[in-house]
């Protein structure tokens, strides 16, 4: 079994994601089955007092999860929790990143804990996450 590449304090390389436009939200609505109209129809969002449609929180969570995607051949995500802290509007750009907070080894592998964040490129907090990756070896 080869060890994981992480030690406490390591940063996951921060990524700026392309802005999600309305078609992107329609696509996520279709793929996820979440057809809540506040994510695609301006009038529905305005009726609830929003200035316009907001992006799906679960899309943000999925995007945060992509930070660990390159490692899924070596293990799996054992725990992934997100708190939604702010609303993300149409065409806003998301920046995602995180860092290692704990590494614990045992006979079968390692468990690596991460804190994750998602914010806009202007610095507004959108979501915070914590994740445990179960490393089984490459």
């Amino acid at each position: 079994m080869s060890g994981s590449p992480w030690k406490v304090g390591d940063a996951l390389e921060e990524r700026q994601l392309p802005a999600v436009d309305r078609m992107g939200l329609v696509r996520y609505a279709g793929a996820s089955g979440d057809f809540n109209p506040i994510h695609v129809v301006d009038e529905a969002a305005e009726k609830t007092g929003l200035p316009g449609v907001i992006q799906h929180g679960m899309l943000t969570m999925a995007q945060m999860g992509t930070l660990l995607s390159p490692h899924l051949a070596s293990g799996f995500i054992e725990y992934f929790q997100t708190r939604f802290a702010g609303m993300l509007f149409l065409d806003e750009r998301l920046v995602i990143g995180g860092k290692v907070t704990a590494v614990e080894g045992d006979d079968d592998g390692e468990t690596i804990a991460f804190d994750l964040y998602a914010r806009t490129d202007e610095g507004r907090q959108i979501a915070r996450g914590s994740l445990r990756f179960r490393w089984l070896g490459s």
């Binding site: 679960m58 054992e78 929790q81 939604f84």
Partner: peptide, 11 residues
Amino acid sequence: HGGQSYTYTRP
């Protein structure tokens, strides 16, 4: 939607 978590035993 205030928060969400997933706990897995495998993929």
